[in-house]
Simulated assay, not measured.
Amino acid sequence: MTSARHIQTLLDQGDREAAVREARAFLRSVTAEAGFGVTNARLTEGPATGFGVFSPREDNVFAPGEPVHAYVEVYGFSLTPGPDGSNRMTFDVSFTLDSPDGVQLTDALVPMGEVLLQSYSSPVDGYFHLTYRITGAEGTFNLRTHVVDRASGQSAEFVLPVEFAAPEAEGK
């Protein structure tokens, strides 16, 4: 088992590459024990362009029918080998709208489809963006999203509060 003390020893010896490799191995062991999870889910102005690279949305108020964009980070996921030697991470995503007091307002979770991430490295975390297209909703809701790591079957959820309101008319 890699430890922080061992990593520090490698750094003290000037072996930065080995220290980083061991730190990643340590983080992988932590996420393996913690299991699959989602963190840093945020509303954004549009799709993210990189890990932590997005424009945060200043509010959570959307016009009816306006696309809702979200940034999501995942950890503790499964890596499955791709035919080209890459590592694949596959997630199934669905969502529902809940009332502010937690009552589910859709008959079932609404499937959004598959998210496939691919890397020629062995990442310890990843990110993706989601675009929700919600019609017919007006008022305040909790946008609850369910993410499943397909290979392990483990799942995680996150909730983003949203409001759908018609824009105020000019001059009122």
Rank of each mutant, 00 (worst) to 15 (best):
Y75D: 02
H69P: 04
R88E: 15
G139C: 02
G52Q: 14
G126V: 04
D107A: 15
Q104L: 08
P67S: 06
S94F: 07
M89K: 07
T44Y: 03
V38R: 00
R133C: 04
G126H: 05
F91P: 01
A34Y: 06
D59S: 14
D12H: 09
T140K: 00
D107N: 14
E66C: 07
E73W: 13
D92H: 01
V159K: 03
L27C: 09
L11N: 02
A48R: 03
A4S: 08
H69E: 06
T131S: 12
L130F: 02
F91D: 00
S155D: 11
V162I: 15
E58A: 15
F158M: 04
L116Q: 11
Q8V: 13
P111L: 04
S29N: 08
S121A: 15
M89P: 01
G153K: 07
V124Q: 04
E33V: 11
L130V: 05
S121M: 10
T106R: 09
P81G: 10
D12C: 06
E170T: 08
R133L: 14
T140I: 00
D92F: 00
Q8I: 11
V74M: 08
Q104K: 14
H69M: 10
S152A: 09
A32K: 08
A151T: 03
A63T: 15
N142Q: 09
Y132C: 07
E33A: 14
F62W: 03
H129L: 04
L79P: 04
N60K: 10
G136C: 04
H69V: 04
L79M: 11
V68G: 02
D149L: 02
T140R: 00
A137Y: 02
R133A: 12
P167V: 08
E157Y: 12
A23C: 07
D84T: 13
A34E: 14
G136S: 06
D12Y: 06
P111M: 05
N40P: 02
T90Y: 02
R21G: 03
S29P: 01
G139A: 05
G171T: 08
Y75K: 08
F141Y: 15
F164V: 00
G50D: 14
L117A: 13
S55R: 10
D92S: 14
T39H: 11
R133V: 10
